Simulated scan of single mutants.
Amino acid sequence: MSARPDPIRCAFERGTDQPLTRRGEAAQSTLAAAFNCSGRGLHTGRHANVRVSPAAADLGIVFRRLLRPGAAVTIPALWQARVPQPLCTALQGPDGTLVRTVEHLLAALNALEIDNALVEIDAEELPIFDGSAMPWCDKIEEAGRIRSTASRRMIRVRRPIEVRDGRRSLRIEPAETLSIAARLSLAHWGELQWEGVITPESFVRDIAPSRSFGRLKWALPAKIYAALSGRPLLRGANLSTTAAIVGSRVIGGMRVPDEPVRHRILDLIGDLSLAGHGILGHVSAAHTGHELNHALVAQLMRDPSAWDLI
């Protein structure tokens, strides 16, 4: 890894409720130390070892899939590398190598303002842990953060961009911070809503605890299908890794009010990070999911007249 400029060490301030916005003194950040973790994937059910390390300024977030001793594939966390996979965000290298279910880690890095990091993994899928982003947030906070002398650049939305798919819609428009207003309707529950500015504080408090969710009556047939077909789909899903919905309740209760819509926001924050920089804009989301999230990012990035890099 190339040498970084002498960094300015700073504590990771979990309690500082500052919006994700570009200030004159803003500088790029990376981790102050590497951290390791391991666990099983939500879809493959396979064990993975992960090491997240500091990285040089302007590198961004990069995944390195370790295939065998001496062989690895590097995949940048950018929208051009994203490929469709069921119920997750997946990135693909030039040779077809996949890294899947990256959205929770990307959301934590994005919201906690870690601009540069190297993520090494010895399997196809990142661990799901408890289905939330809190384990990643805890690891990032424990590692701490250092700033470089390189300026932090942001994507400032100049005009509205919208994508739709039936009742699903996603719109981003100009704003001075990243803010999200989301709603989600579930049978037996009615409409769930959350709205707020995304800051390190609000993410850890309001969004990161929310877990991947699904209805138990649909998850069990999907797991049987995956086992019979050999497809990597929900093989690691259980009551410890997801919020299982039965009727109008979550087994064991919700961690935060309206937990399912907050988890959709968590996924959205991770997917937005594939733009390559933090985004300044107000997002309105109705029943969104990964496919619509990626459609918005792709449409925004393919239209340079809709944004500035500041």
Rank of each mutant, 00 (worst) to 15 (best):
162 E>T: 15
162 E>K: 14
163 V>E: 06
164 R>K: 13
164 R>F: 05
165 D>R: 15
165 D>W: 09
166 G>H: 04
166 G>E: 02
168 R>C: 02
169 S>V: 10
169 S>H: 12
169 S>C: 09
170 L>G: 06
171 R>V: 09
172 I>V: 15
173 E>C: 08
173 E>V: 05
175 A>K: 01
175 A>E: 06
176 E>C: 06
176 E>V: 13
176 E>S: 13
177 T>R: 09
177 T>H: 11
178 L>E: 05
179 S>C: 14
179 S>M: 03
182 A>P: 05
182 A>M: 01
183 R>E: 12
184 L>G: 05
184 L>P: 12
184 L>F: 10
184 L>S: 07
184 L>T: 11
185 S>V: 10
185 S>Y: 05
185 S>N: 09
186 L>N: 02
186 L>R: 01
187 A>T: 15
187 A>F: 07
190 G>E: 03
191 E>Q: 14
191 E>K: 09
191 E>V: 15
191 E>T: 15
191 E>D: 14
192 L>A: 02
192 L>I: 06
193 Q>L: 09
194 W>E: 03
194 W>N: 00
199 T>W: 03
202 S>R: 06
202 S>K: 00
203 F>D: 12
203 F>S: 02
205 R>D: 04
207 I>Q: 03
208 A>W: 08
211 R>M: 03
213 F>P: 01
213 F>N: 02
213 F>G: 04
214 G>M: 01
214 G>I: 07
216 L>F: 11
216 L>I: 15
216 L>M: 12
217 K>C: 03
217 K>T: 09
217 K>N: 05
219 A>H: 06
220 L>N: 08
221 P>H: 02
221 P>I: 07
221 P>Q: 03
225 Y>R: 15
225 Y>G: 07
225 Y>N: 08
226 A>H: 10
228 L>Q: 12
228 L>E: 13
228 L>N: 07
229 S>M: 10
229 S>G: 03
229 S>L: 04
229 S>Q: 00
229 S>V: 08
231 R>G: 01
231 R>M: 12
231 R>Q: 14
233 L>V: 14
233 L>I: 14
233 L>K: 01
234 L>W: 13
234 L>P: 07
236 G>E: 00
236 G>P: 01
237 A>M: 02
237 A>V: 14
238 N>S: 14
240 S>L: 11
244 A>K: 00
244 A>V: 15
245 I>E: 02
245 I>C: 00
245 I>G: 04
246 V>C: 05
